[in-house]
Simulated scan of single mutants.
Amino acid sequence: MGTPHSPRSDTRARIIEVSLELFSEQGYEQTSLREIADRLGVTKAALYYHFKTKDDIVLGIVERMAAPIDETIAWGRTQAWSPEMRDELIRRFADGMAERAPLLRFFHENQPALRESPAGLAFRERIITMMQLVHGPQASFQDRLRAAMTLFTIHSSMFLLQQDAKDCDRPENVWGEKPPVADLDEALEAARTVALEVGGRITHPAPPAPPAPAPARP
């Protein structure tokens, strides 16, 4: 079995890195295992030793880049729900955003091919679990929606940042303005702030007070 610093794990990490590059350049469906092997400078048989299919590679990408989500979920499962626990979940989820950005961009650009793939389903399950931890038990539909929007806010910050980079040469927007372009740190801080504002509206009503004891009969 490979260890975190073994040659095998290093090779798997390199395969994941190169595959993500090619998927981003050409699209998932247009990239073959042969092209991945050629970019790596290895034989197709050597690639098969680590990953049998492209789906296996994508699942490896998800497992690697979603590791901070798994850690946050594991922590959340040990906590009783409270506003403080909710906010800490949101902060931890936001803190891993920069590492997940390439994965989100990859899924966004290859949605038709990946929507029902094992990797797509695995990532979706993680997000659903995060939503449930954020909104807590016995949540109303409104609070479930707020939890979904909280996570969506964090992910949207990366798409907005990417769009700003593409539009940097555009002279003005529909309002006749040239919007300021944020850097990565500013985008992450904005995402954390807005997500906490939305998530802060998820509140559970206090449990009802126990009924008063019946008056003693004379």
Rank of each mutant, 00 (worst) to 15 (best):
residue 3 T to V: 00
residue 6 S to Q: 06
residue 7 P to R: 14
residue 11 T to F: 11
residue 12 R to G: 02
residue 13 A to M: 03
residue 14 R to C: 00
residue 19 S to L: 08
residue 19 S to H: 06
residue 22 L to Q: 00
residue 23 F to P: 02
residue 24 S to I: 00
residue 31 T to C: 02
residue 36 I to D: 01
residue 41 G to S: 11
residue 42 V to H: 11
residue 42 V to E: 11
residue 44 K to N: 03
residue 45 A to N: 00
residue 53 T to Q: 07
residue 57 I to K: 01
residue 58 V to F: 13
residue 62 V to C: 03
residue 72 T to L: 13
residue 78 T to H: 07
residue 80 A to H: 08
residue 80 A to E: 10
residue 80 A to V: 10
residue 85 M to R: 15
residue 88 E to P: 03
residue 88 E to L: 09
residue 89 L to Q: 05
residue 91 R to V: 05
residue 95 D to E: 15
residue 97 M to N: 09
residue 98 A to N: 13
residue 98 A to L: 15
residue 107 F to Y: 09
residue 118 P to D: 01
residue 119 A to R: 00
residue 120 G to D: 08
residue 122 A to R: 14
residue 126 R to L: 11
residue 129 T to D: 12
residue 130 M to A: 06
residue 131 M to D: 03
residue 132 Q to C: 00
residue 137 P to Q: 05
residue 138 Q to K: 12
residue 139 A to I: 09
residue 143 D to W: 06
residue 143 D to K: 04
residue 160 L to I: 11
residue 160 L to D: 10
residue 161 L to T: 03
residue 163 Q to S: 12
residue 164 D to R: 13
residue 167 D to Y: 13
residue 170 R to F: 09
residue 174 V to Y: 14
residue 179 P to R: 11
residue 181 V to W: 07
residue 183 D to E: 05
residue 185 D to A: 15
residue 190 A to C: 08
residue 193 T to R: 15
residue 194 V to E: 12
residue 195 A to R: 05
residue 203 T to N: 07
residue 203 T to P: 02
residue 215 P to L: 09
residue 216 A to S: 09
residue 216 A to H: 08
